[in-house]
Nucleic acid binder design. Sequence first.
DNA 1: CGCCGCATTGATCTTATTCAATCTGAGTGG
DNA 2: CCACTCAGATTGAATAAGATCAATGCGGCG
Lengths: 243, 243
Amino acid sequence: MLATSHHTTETAQRRNLPALPPRTDDLTSSLPEGKSRVVSAKEHVYREGDPATHVYCVEAGHVCIYRVLPDGRRQIINFAYPGDFIGLGALREHAASALAGAKTRLKSFPVAGLHESARHDTTLGLRLYTAVSEQLAAAHDLLMTVSHRSASERLAAFLLALSRRNGRRGESECEIVLPMTRTDIADFLGLTIETVSRTFTKFRVEGLIDLEQCILVTIRDLEALGMAAGSGVPSEQQLKLAS
Amino acid sequence: MLATSHHTTETAQRRNLPALPPRTDDLTSSLPEGKSRVVSAKEHVYREGDPATHVYCVEAGHVCIYRVLPDGRRQIINFAYPGDFIGLGALREHAASALAGAKTRLKSFPVAGLHESARHDTTLGLRLYTAVSEQLAAAHDLLMTVSHRSASERLAAFLLALSRRNGRRGESECEIVLPMTRTDIADFLGLTIETVSRTFTKFRVEGLIDLEQCILVTIRDLEALGMAAGSGVPSEQQLKLAS
DNA sequence: CGCCGCATTGATCTTATTCAATCTGAGTGG
DNA sequence: CCACTCAGATTGAATAAGATCAATGCGGCG
């Protein structure tokens, strides 16, 4: 595991995530050895339109996957955390851009090699299929969240998704570090920064969360946040981040 | 090709699509023989939560893929037309429901058989991967459209997507038959029926389209519709329907 | 100290939703 | 055959939610 890295003067560096061992993913284990690649904060791993030569697995840091509309509006499609694959599903060229939000280390796998390996390992194709399928499900979740839900519901669903992600990784479900800016969250949820900020404030005054330095969110009332997310039962079918 | 079918009294029947030869898709050709299945209008091919035992290829008719939020709001994820695959990407159980919008004929393929075939045909896994990847790209397109765009932009993008789909099938790019209801369109674009209806009317009075019986849209000014869709250059990055 | 990026807060405006009424065409039954 | 019904579509008026415009606050870094 990469030692938590040399402090740079980069503002975004304070948002660095603790480097975690990548989850032992079905896919990783069956892949040939990948080369490491490190990109610094605010640097692109790849851009929309680039030939899709590699897929990557995030090992430390985090990456925003996004696309921009011709008029400049940006939609963030996913925040890739350690253990997540990016660049999968790109056919000939990447349909989205991948921007490191902090100094990020990735394992890279040439797609040519992937195709080669698939010829020997008959299960690899299906594993790739499974991996993209998960991303497809996540895209549908995001679609549900973004299309019909109110600002409060979107943000609540977002926080709960991060909470669950933390839980899955054995971290606290109530202490959430937001490595991304308000702008990023807004572009992910299809809102403006102002609305995101206002909604954070609303949750705070309602006692659902605590906020420290915009970065650290403490969930005070998970139950109520669930209600806020789902307008009804606190249960299922919320936003799932691809993970 | 199925003869354009026996007229039923079903209202939705008038919305039936002309039966087309399914596109000779990469995937279809490499699949073992599939059994035919016919479902009538307003009948489910499968429901959210059903075990994902089969994938299907639409041969005639059309199918709405949708999910519902706990509070009842519905998001249509895709309209599957002849040649389109549905049920792909479901891991253990279907994450969405598939409802036939008209009498629909499908070829069904058991997933168990798929896994079996993949063991012999090493390229099948990759083809499945490619197929889901296309759906992922389509989901991202829809996400872009639904999250940041105005009602006019959404509807314009939708009409253009159908126009392009027609073009790809060698049909008229200006005469668009809408086999789905306003409610369906609304649930696809994340709007209300009223807004959809108003926007149709707006396009009509602006001379962008003609409307006959809510079903038949004639594009009068493709250029202007492109502008309406993209607020800027009429070019790329619009809504693409998975097809 | 003062700049700069980011976040917050406020006031106003636009847009789509909501509520409600009307319209249309197709199927139904007297 | 015609009135009736019903589902889907359209239109209008009022409302609410978020976007936009604008100002201020905060924290780190030069």
